[in-house]
Write a protein that binds this DNA or RNA. Structure first.
Lengths: 130, 130
DNA sequence: GTGAGTGGTCACAAATCTTGACCAGCACCA
DNA sequence: TGGTGCTGGTCAAGATTTGTGACCACTCAC
């Protein structure tokens, strides 16, 4: 089918969708949310972050933080202390991302009950139809 | 480890994160964006949507639309015409979701070049370090 | 010296996404 | 009259992403 290479489909489209899939990722959103909750200038330790996000595996946290760091949204600071502690903090770019991300998180929180009701109704209708 | 069930970690947390992973999903965002671009009241045909989103497979489009329909964010209307055509349109809930989603999409679009530059810098630094 | 916390990495299993074929019916063109 | 394409999907299989649990070296408290 070769995917209908319309004149409309500009190459930016793929780049935007790729970036969107990172930025809108479940764990990214939760991490940015956790980091944004911290007072500005203060970072968050690795395991502290893991505790706050809740339900994330170490591997996924490491991986997501690396991506965020690569994209310049979080800054990673290693303190060469006795147990080498690592601090993660949002950069300016990260804080600017936090604005739409928090808006999405707020929407999600606000509409949670309604969506659960919709799902129940949908599944109920399916059950009756059968 | 049993995941440190802090007093801070309420059970809503999982529900929010689950919903966030749907709502913030790459394809969901792109579909809502495409649907929102349509004049209010007008739906979008299946293949029309597929063309507009670009790069999505039929299966993924079907699956995402079903989820969105179940959550009450899009309405599916089947016209029993000669080639049975199907229309998808955002509901009120879907339009309200579109607000934060579009904000995220706009952020993504605006910061695309900067993020690509950050990535190049990060990867370059890695290359030099080696 | 046993157990826990520091910040990870590695390998493997499970879930998810993509690819491409197929379906039935009709329109268009030669 | 037959070949091709469009309608809106479904199905199976392969590729990719995610989650699970173990392990690492080190230090502190008990």
């Amino acid at each position: 089918m070769t995917d209908t290479p319309h004149p409309h489909a500009d190459p930016d489209c793929r780049a935007v969708s790729e970036l969107l899939s990172r930025v809108g990722d479940k764990w990214t959103v939760l991490i940015v949310k956790a980091l944004e909750a911290k007072p500005r200038g203060r970072g968050c330790r690795f395991n502290e972050l893991k505790r706050e996000v809740g339900g994330i595996s170490q591997q996924m946290l490491t991986r997501t933080l690396r991506t965020l760091e690569r994209d310049g949204m979080v800054a990673r600071t290693v303190h060469h202390t006795v147990p080498p502690s690592v601090e993660y903090a949002l950069t300016d770019l990260g804080h600017s991302l936090a604005v739409p991300v928090m808006a999405l998180a707020d929407w999600t929180f606000a509409h949670l009950p309604q969506i659960h009701a919709n799902r129940a109704a949908y599944d109920g209708a399916l059950g009756e139809a059968a």
